[in-house]
Design a protein around this nucleic acid. Structure first.
Lengths: 359, 359
DNA sequence: GCAGCCGTATAGATCGATCTAATTATTCCA
DNA sequence: TGGAATAATTAGATCGATCTATACGGCTGC
C-alpha cells in the first residue's frame, strides 16, 4: 500500500485502511490521513492542531471533525525532531526514597509539567556509575535540560560538571562547581539550631549523621562549628559522628555517642530521619529526650510534627527548593549562555518538644 | 551553508564548521558529519554505532575515531521515529511522597533502565484531572507503555481503562478493571494480622486508616472482616475508621477511636505510616503500646524497625511489587494482545514489639 | 483595469536516525 | 583464472511532524 497514492482516492482507501486496522495491524493515524479525510493539505492540518489562527473557521471545523472521527493521536516525538525541542527534562535524584527528595521531586515535576515539559526520572541510589549511565541516556534522548542532585562518593559529579557547557543543567541540594545551584543555607540552619540549644542550656552538643562527601553535610558542620565558636564553646571533631542519612543511621550512631566520655547533652542531626532514629535509640538507652537530652533535626518533614516528642527542627522547605531548581533550569534553557546563578533558601527554626530548657 | 554539499568538500568545510560552532551557533554533529569525516556513508556510520557486526574492523575504527574527534552525541529521538520504539515508559504514581510508592518506583525505574527504557515520571497527588493530563502527555509522547497507580476519588481510573486496548498499560497497588495488575494479597495480609492479634488475646480490634475508594483499602477491610468472623468475633463497622494514609491521618484517627464506648484494645492500621501516627497518639493518651494496646501496621517500611516500640507489621515488599509490575509491562509490550495477567504477592507477618501477649 | 495587499492554503524541504534492496569488493574453489 | 558465494558498503526511502517560501483568490484603491 503506497502512502503517497492515498491522498488521491480518499474514501475508498480509507475504508480499506479501517478494515486493515482491526485485522492486520493498527497503523498509526497521521496528519496525512487527517488531511486526506478533511480534504486539505498536511500543512493546514498541522496549523489546526497547533491552534494557529490563520485558518478559516470552516476548514478548522472540518479538520477537527476528521481528527475526532479517525481517532488521531498527536505524535510529539515527530514534532520534537523537527522543532528541535524534545520537551523533556531529566531529573536525577540520589535517593527518591528520602522524604526530602521525594517532596522536592514532586515540586519539580509539577513545575515542569506546568511549563509543558515531561520529566525523565533517574534514581541513582547514590551510585556514581548509575548516575553516569542515566546522564548519558538523558543527554542522548535528548533532554533539553537536567536537574541533578549528584550522588556522593568522590566530591563532585564529574559527569555533570563535564556537561556544563553543552546542556542546560542545574544542581540542587548538593553543589556542583560550575553549575547553577538551588539549595538551602545549610550553615545558617545549623547555626540557628546550635544557638537555640545553647540558649536552652545545652553546652555539650554533638553533630550526628551526614556523609562528609556531601556539600550539605559539610555546610551544616561548618555552621555548627561556627556557632559553637561564637558561643564560646570548644569544637571537638570527636563529636561529629558521620552516618547514613537514614533512621537506621541515626539509631546506630547513638551507640558511638554514648561511649564518649563527658557525654554530650544534645545532638544536632543531619536530617529529621536521622533525628527520629536518634530519639528512639536515646529513649531506649533510658535518657529523656526533651529535657535531659536535646535533639534537633533538619528539613521539617511531615513526620517531624507527629513524633513523640515533637521534633524541633530546621525547616528547609523541599517544595520551595524543587520549585526554585526547576525555575533555574527553565531560565537556563531560555538563555543557555547567561552567567551561572544560585538560589539559596533561608531556613527557619521550628520549635517543638524535643529540646526544652535544660533542667 | 548547504547541508548536502558538505559531503563533497570534506575537510575544508569541516574546518569552517568548527569555527562556526564556537562563534555563531553549535550545530549538532550528526551521522552525516561522521560519515563525511570518516569517508563512509551515513548507513555505514549507523551500522557502527549500533555495533552491527557486518562492518570491517578497519572502517569501524575509522568511524569510531571520527565520532570521538567530532564529539558526536547519539540522538535517540530521531532513531525512535524511524524504529517506532521510543524506549520510554510512563510511570504514574498517586503520591511518590509515600515511602511505599517511593520504594516501588525505585524498583520500577531500575527494572526499566535495565531493559533500556527511560522512565517518564508523573505524580498525580491523587488528583484525577492531573492524572488525565499526564496520561495524555505520555500517550502522545509517545510512551511505549504505562505503569499506573491510579488516583483515588471515584472508583476506577477512567482514563487508564479507556486506553486499555490502545497502549500497553499495567496497574499496580490499586486494581483497574480490564488491566494487568501487580499487587499484594491485601485480604490475606489483613487476615494474618487479625489472627495474630486474636491469638495474643486482643479481641476488640479496630481498623484504622485507608481511603474506602482504594482497592487496597477495600481488600484489607475485607480480610479484616473475614478473619474476625472466622475467629468468632463480631464485625462492627464503627470500628473501621477511614483516614488519609499519612502519619497525621493515623494520629488524628485516634481521637475518634478513644471516643468509642467499649474502647478497642488493638488496631490494625492501613499502613505503617498511619500506624506510627497511631502509636504516637496512643502513647500521648497515656496508653501503653505493646502490652495494653496492640498496633499492627502494613508494608514494613524501613522506619518500622526503628520505631519505639518496634512495629509489628505485614511485609508487602514494595520493591518486589515494583519489579513485578515492570516485568508485566515489559511482557505486554512484547505481546500486546496476550490475555490480561495479575501478579499477587503474598505478604508476611513481621513480629516486633508493638503488640505482645495481652496482659 | 491593474497594481498591491490581505487572508488562506499548500508543496516541498527538513529534523537525524534506520531500513530495504541493491551494488560493489573480496574470497573461495573448481 | 573465471565465476559463484560471501562480505562490506551504500543510495534512497522512510518515520510524522513543522517550517519556509510560494501560490492563489478576492478585495481595495487609484
Amino acid at each position: 500500500m503506497d502512502r503517497s497514492t492515498r491522498q488521491s482516492s480518499i474514501s475508498f482507501l480509507l475504508a480499506l485502511d479501517l478494515l486493515y486496522m482491526d485485522a492486520v495491524q493498527k497503523r498509526r493515524v497521521t496528519l496525512l490521513d487527517i488531511a486526506a479525510d478533511a480534504g486539505v493539505s498536511r500543512a493546514t492540518a498541522s496549523l489546526v492542531i497547533r491552534n494557529v489562527p490563520s485558518v478559516a473557521e470552516t476548514t478548522r471545523k472540518r479538520v477537527l471533525r476528521s481528527i475526532k472521527r479517525l481517532g488521531y493521536v498527536y505524535h510529539s516525538g515527530a514534532a520534537s525532531l523537527r522543532t528541535q525541542r524534545s520537551n523533556a527534562v531529566g531529573l536525577i535524584v540520589s535517593d527518591i526514597t528520602n522524604p526530602f527528595f521525594a517532596e522536592a521531586s514532586v515540586a519539580i515535576e509539577e513545575r515542569l509539567a506546568a511549563a509543558n515539559y515531561v520529566t525523565l526520572l533517574g534514581n541513582t541510589s547514590e551510585d556514581r556509575a548509575k548516575e553516569d549511565r542515566v546522564l548519558k541516556t538523558m543527554r542522548e534522548f535528548p533532554a533539553q535540560g537536567i536537574l541533578i542532585c549528584p550522588a556522593l562518593e568522590g566530591n563532585a559529579s564529574g559527569g555533570a560538571s563535564a556537561l556544563a557547557g553543552q546542556l542546560p543543567i542545574v544542581a540542587f541540594a548538593r553543589r556542583v562547581p560550575g553549575l547553577d545551584y538551588a539549595g538551602v543555607d545549610n550553615a545558617q540552619g545549623a547555626q540557628l539550631a546550635v544557638e537555640h540549644l545553647y540558649q536552652l542550656g545545652y553546652h555539650q552538643i554533638a553533630f550526628i549523621g551526614g556523609n562528609p562527601n556531601s556539600s550539605a553535610s559539610q555546610e551544616r558542620v561548618e555552621g555548627y562549628q561556627r556557632a559553637l565558636t561564637r558561643s564560646g564553646l570548644q569544637f571537638d571533631p570527636l563529636l561529629v559522628i558521620a552516618s547514613a542519612p537514614t533512621r537506621r543511621g541515626g539509631y546506630e550512631s547513638v551507640q558511638k555517642l554514648l561511649q564518649i566520655e563527658d557525654r554530650p547533652t544534645a545532638a544536632l542531626c543531619f536530617n529529621d530521619v536521622v533525628a527520629l532514629g536518634v530519639i528512639e535509640a536515646i529513649q531506649l538507652a533510658g535518657l529523656k529526650v526533651g529535657a535531659g537530652f536535646g535533639v534537633i533535626g533538619f528539613n521539617n518533614i511531615p513526620d517531624a510534627a507527629y513524633s513523640l516528642p515533637g521534633l524541633t527542627t530546621i525547616d528547609t522547605s523541599p517544595r520551595q527548593l524543587g520549585d526554585a531548581a526547576a525555575e533555574l533550569l527553565l531560565k537556563r534553557i531560555e538563555q543557555p549562555d547567561s552567567p551561572t546563578r544560585s538560589i539559596i533558601l533561608q531556613p527557619r527554626l521550628i520549635v517543638r518538644e524535643s529540646c526544652r530548657a535544660r533542667t
